[in-house]
Design a protein around this nucleic acid. Sequence first.
RNA 1: GGAGAGGUGCAGGAGUGGUUGAACUGGACGGUCUCGAAAACCGUUGUGCCUGCAAGGGCACCGAGGGUUCGAAUCCCUCCCUCUCCGCCA
Length: 431
Amino acid sequence: MIDIQIIRDNPELVQTKAKQKGYDIDVSALLKIDEQRRELVGKVEVLRKERNDLAGQLKQGKPSEEQLAKGRKLKTEIAKLDDKLGAQETELLALLKKVPNMPLDYVPVGASEDENIIEKTVGEKPKFDFEPQNHWEIGQKRGWIDKERAAKVAGARFAYVKGDLVRLHFAMIQFGMDVLTNEDILKKIIADNNLNLSSKPFTLVMPPAVARTEVYDATGRLNKEEQTYKLADDDLWLNASAEHVMAPMYMGEILSEADLPIRLVGYTTAFRREAGTYGKDMEGILRMHQFDKLEMESFTTGDTGLEEHKLMVAIQEYLMQQLGLSYQVLQKCTADIGGPNAAGVDINTWLPGQNKYRETHTADYITDYQTRRMNTRVRGKNGSVELTHTNDATAFSQRPLVAIIENYQQADGTVRVPKVLQSYMGGRTVL
RNA sequence: GGAGAGGUGCAGGAGUGGUUGAACUGGACGGUCUCGAAAACCGUUGUGCCUGCAAGGGCACCGAGGGUUCGAAUCCCUCCCUCUCCGCCA
């Protein structure tokens, strides 16, 4: 949620920035309710003061019938205004929740993901002296991916991932965990990218896979409820990313600045309904209802939030470089970063089997948009209290796994193991 | 799932209808003392909202939401969470 004070001070700007994201919001209606609400608050508070004063008087001695009558009158008046106030606040909150975070000024303005800016292309595409195959062709031949049987059990967009592909998955995850918890590597990444940040390593987390409605909604990630699985008998939603269940971890807390940054790297299975994507990416395991993912999440002060975002992208690049994959870094345009984001970067990785770069990573800088409703704050050294900023970013999901299969395939159908993963595979070099 | 206990400020912990934003203890911060530190002593130590140029004024908040009352941390209801025991269970 955005700060209402910003809307009061810069209504046109907020309207414009929302429009850049493709959001149609009615700022003037929002401000009108805000004004009415404030007027009402003033009235209610005057009455409450009267009530409090009267109660103070009645404390000593026995109250007269006249005084009691006055108290009763105040009570009904307050109750009446309170009802009205409550309704206005509900309405205001509903409108406020619809206002997206404002993109930072450097974020390119665009109407669709086609206007994302490719900032750079890194690494060499592999050359093949044979026709490279799709990961699903390879997966099927090697018995690594069985979607037909998964469909019997769970429906479309589920898979049995089997055999060496499971080992490769966990090798990749373990490699990611080792990088993110290694302070020396972080130090080097920070220095190489001219960042001015703490080198505090990430803390490994296995978070709850579900969150309650109130909590999930506060993260700003439940705006599209049709995209999220809901449990039938409990007030719980299946997470669509570890980010969604790590972000609310410090809800309602005032953190100490000395404890920041808090860097978490969570491993969880993510669930997505993928409503509206029927027919898209039906082959392979690029777009599934369920996938396992290693995800970064950081809590910082407002001062360091943007640098932290850059660090996460730098980490993603480091991981892909270590795997020897070719990728592009895309500065996402206003239409593609999503409501809660102030900025966002995608990493698209070369998939020779499909002859194109496909999104494998994303990095989100949310500023204080989540923490305002989650009420996660930080007390500075001078005693001031401010909202923390949050960042999240993919470390590894199933998509980089797909990239490994396609990039490291050989003519005989085998797949080489990237060098950095070999030690996690018992020294095996080929699968 | 059954039975019981409980949720109060940074922490522990008082407070069962009247100004209680909340005793007391500890922690933290500032000061005195000291070469420095410890000890001791003194002082400070909530958040949000409304209003105001400011100083200030006001309101709300004791898990959440309702209710009773002139008045609620305190009484009642619903929900959430935590703990203990039993049952079940990887």
